[in-house]
Amino acid sequence: MKRHLINAVRMMMLLTYRFFRAFPRKRRIVCLSRESDRPTTDFRLIRHYVRQTHPDYSVVILAKKLHNPVRYGFHMIRQLYFIATSQAVLLDTYAIVVSLLAGYIDVPVIQMWHALGNMKKFGYTALSSKEGRKFSTASLLNMHRGYTSVLISSKSFISDYARGFDIDPSIIYEAPLPRCDLLINSSYRAQQRERIIREFPELGRKLNIVYCPTFRKKTPANQTQAAAALADAIDYDKYNLIVKCHPLDDLRINNPHVFQHYPSQYDMLFVADYVISDYSTVIYEAGLLDLPVFLYAYDWPDYSKKRSLYIDPKRDIPTLFTDDAEAIVRAIEHDDFDHAAYQAFIRRNVAIPEHGSCTARVVEHVFDLIAAR
């Protein structure tokens, strides 16, 4: 039954796409995202760069989370129109219309993905795991099919991405996400820090520890206890503890000292003096900011069974990896962190271009693919 329904949807999409193909194709790039209801930083940087360097082209950003299937269905019709009438398609996540129409879309489709670097197994390498999709669902939805190119932050991840997307490694292109340009820009970082502290003056009075846990599909049984242990270990005369959750996570710590209620547009990494994470790729962003990073793996025995990682965090990431919140706070207080080793780890996994910007590398690759058609 489900297969017949998906096939019917695919046929309707194909007919709609072919109808829209009768419209003139414009000098335009369309960007699709389910990560947010607002244009992401990466797409906004791409739009700005295209305006400066290719003024005869426009960039349309279609960002919408899948909150309501019916409303999203109408959104997909809009996606089909812009795919059919644009010169290229950029994605930062799985897009239903692109994969279901794989083989029919006749312009370059570039999968940029939304995570900097990689840690967790995803896509086809996570099928049938407790944190991944079912194989039958991936097959029905033609998951991650139809890509012309897949961007990657470093060639060190080629094998991981080839398996995760189930693609030929030859279509993988080394180009870190555009937002890397902001993370390595000292002037921008200072501006963002000043902006946040103007809004929240208390964050300028102490050192800031930013806690960035990864998103878990199912809340761990010991999450509340572990979060409370971390909050209780902090000396609030010296430090602020700021919680920076994944957009889909609703973690809240029951402690009045914890700073966790603020608008999502404020990226608290820019006021961080220390970062605590676990299995999140935020560790690469923190590394580009040259911040000390510590890994609070309170649910590692359970998580490692549900969701395998491509790397061994205990062995491959040169920092403290522990389920002991007090040990992390002691490391912070004694500045027990090897900056040189961690920066070497970041350089291996995020290949910042020697010349030009990350945004330029992405955009010029898109235009190379357009020209090759």
Rank of each mutant, 00 (worst) to 15 (best):
D232Q: 14
V271W: 05
I283G: 00
Y274M: 01
L248K: 14
S277R: 07
L269P: 03
Y262M: 13
D232W: 00
D235G: 01
Y279H: 09
I242S: 00
D232G: 04
Y284V: 08
L241C: 08
C245K: 15
I253M: 06
Y274S: 00
N254W: 10
Y236K: 01
S280N: 00
K238D: 11
K244A: 05
Y284G: 12
Y266G: 04
D235S: 09
D232R: 15
V275M: 09
L230Y: 05
I283F: 04
H246D: 03
K244I: 02
R252V: 11
V271S: 08
D235I: 06
D273G: 09
E285H: 14
V243D: 08
P263I: 13
L269A: 00
F259I: 00
Y284R: 09
Y236C: 02
K244C: 06
Y274E: 04
V275S: 05
H257T: 09
P263L: 07
A286G: 15
L241P: 10
D267S: 07
H246C: 05
L248V: 12
H246V: 02
I234T: 08
I234K: 01
C245V: 15
V258W: 07
P256N: 07
D273W: 08
L269Q: 04
L269H: 05
L269Y: 02
P247E: 10
A272K: 10
V243K: 12
Q260T: 15
V275N: 02
H261T: 15
V258G: 02
I234L: 03
Q265E: 15
V258A: 01
H261P: 11
Y266N: 14
Y236I: 04
K244Y: 09
H246E: 07
D267L: 05
Y236N: 00
D237S: 13
E285C: 09
K244G: 00
A286D: 13
Y279Q: 01
R252F: 01
L230P: 09
D235C: 03
L251N: 09
P256A: 00
D250L: 11
M268L: 14
S280R: 01
A231M: 02
Q265M: 10
M268V: 06
V243G: 04
N255S: 12
V243R: 10
D237Q: 15
H257R: 10
D273M: 04
S264C: 13
M268A: 03
T281S: 15
Q265P: 08
M268E: 02
D273N: 15
A233P: 05
A233Y: 12
D278P: 06
I253E: 05
P247H: 03
I253S: 00
A231W: 03
Y236T: 05
I276T: 09
A286W: 13
D249M: 07
A231K: 01
Y239R: 01
L251R: 06
N254T: 15
A231S: 02
I253R: 02
G287T: 13
P256V: 03
H257M: 12
V282I: 13
A233V: 13
Y266M: 06
L241F: 08
K244W: 05
A231T: 06
P256D: 12
T281L: 01
I234R: 02
A272E: 12
Y236L: 04
V243T: 14
Q260I: 13
K238W: 00
H261R: 14
H246N: 08
Y262N: 06
H246M: 05
Y266Q: 13
F259E: 02
L251C: 04
N255W: 10
A286M: 09
V271Q: 07
Y236W: 06
T281W: 05
Y274V: 04
L251Q: 10
N240F: 07
